[in-house]
Design a protein around this nucleic acid. Structure first.
Length: 220
DNA sequence: TGCCAGGCCGGGT
DNA sequence: ACCCGGCATGGC
C-alpha cells in the first residue's frame, strides 16, 4: 500500500496541475460552489456566464436581484428555485461583511467553517470548497468522486462519512492549501475518467496497482 | 432512452 | 443517528 502523498505524486505526474478552481474571482468561486451541487460543471458554466453577462458577478449587485429573477438566470445549472434561495442565503451572509470577501476571510478558519455550515443550503462540501478555493485556507474538500475512488480502491469503507474521509487526508498530509487544492482536483479528474458510478472498469486506471486486492472493491 | 452530474434539506423511521 | 424523496437541466 502506498501512502496518500505517494498517490498524489503519481497522479500529479500523470495528469499535471488541474488549475482549480475554474473561476476568475473568489466571489465567482463561491457562487460556483453552490451552483455545482450535484450538477455537471458544464451546466454551471452557462449559469455563471449569464450572471457575468448581466453584470451581476459581485456581492452587492447579485444580492439586489429578486429571487425569481435570479432563478431564471441560473436555470441552466438546474434546481433553480432551490439554488436561487441558497445563493441568497449565502449573499446575505456575505452582506454582513459589507460584501468584502477579504474581510470575511479574516475570520479564523474553524469559526468561518461553522458559520458557513449554519447557512441554509451550505453543507460540508460547499463550505470546504469555499474555504479552500475561494479563501485559500487549508481544508480538504471531499466529494462523491473522492468517496467513490477511495472506497473502490479499498482505502476506506463505502460506509465512511464526510468527516471521516476528510480527517483521513488531513491527518496524514501536511496542512497545505496548494496540496489540498491540487489533490482534490486530481481525484475529480480520475473519478470522471476512470471511476464511473455504473460499469466500473479499472483498466488503465492510474491507481490500479494500488488496489489492495488486485480488483475493484464492490459496495455491499 | 435512461442515467448521471464536483449536495443539501426535511420528514419519516 | 440513518434513510429516502425531492429538487431540474443538459450531455452522453
Amino acid at each position: 500500500m502506498s501512502s496518500l502523498i505517494q498517490t498524489y505524486e503519481r497522479l500529479l505526474a500523470a495528469f499535471g496541475p488541474q488549475h482549480w478552481w475554474p473561476g476568475d474571482s473568489p466571489f465567482e468561486i463561491m457562487v460556483g460552489a453552490v451552483l455545482v451541487q450535484n450538477t455537471a460543471w458544464k451546466n454551471v458554466e452557462r449559469a455563471i456566464a449569464n450572471l457575468r453577462d448581466a453584470g451581476l458577478m459581485s456581492p452587492h449587485a447579485l444580492y439586489a436581484v429578486p429571487t425569481d429573477e435570479l432563478a431564471e438566470l441560473i436555470r441552466p445549472a438546474g434546481y433553480l428555485q432551490v439554488k436561487a434561495r441558497r445563493l441568497r442565503s449565502l449573499l446575505k451572509f456575505v452582506d454582513e461583511y459589507d460584501g468584502s470577501l477579504d474581510a470575511l476571510f479574516q475570520t479564523d478558519a474553524a469559526t468561518l467553517r461553522e458559520r458557513l455550515l449554519s447557512i441554509h443550503g451550505i453543507g460540508p462540501e460547499t463550505a470546504d470548497a469555499i474555504l479552500l478555493y475561494a479563501g485559500g485556507l487549508p481544508t480538504f474538500v471531499v466529494d462523491t468522486y473522492t468517496h467513490r475512488v477511495l472506497a473502490r480502491h479499498g482505502w476506506i469503507g463505502y460506509e465512511a462519512g464526510y468527516d471521516e474521509i476528510k480527517d483521513h487526508f488531513e491527518s496524514s498530509l501536511p496542512q497545505d492549501a496548494k496540496l489540498y487544492n491540487e489533490y482534490h482536483a486530481l481525484l475529480v479528474r480520475v473519478g470522471k475518467e476512470y471511476c464511473h458510478k455504473t460499469a466500473p472498469t479499472c483498466e488503465s486506471c492510474p491507481l490500479a496497482d494500488l488496489l489492495p486486492s488486485g480488483g475493484i472493491v464492490e459496495p455491499m
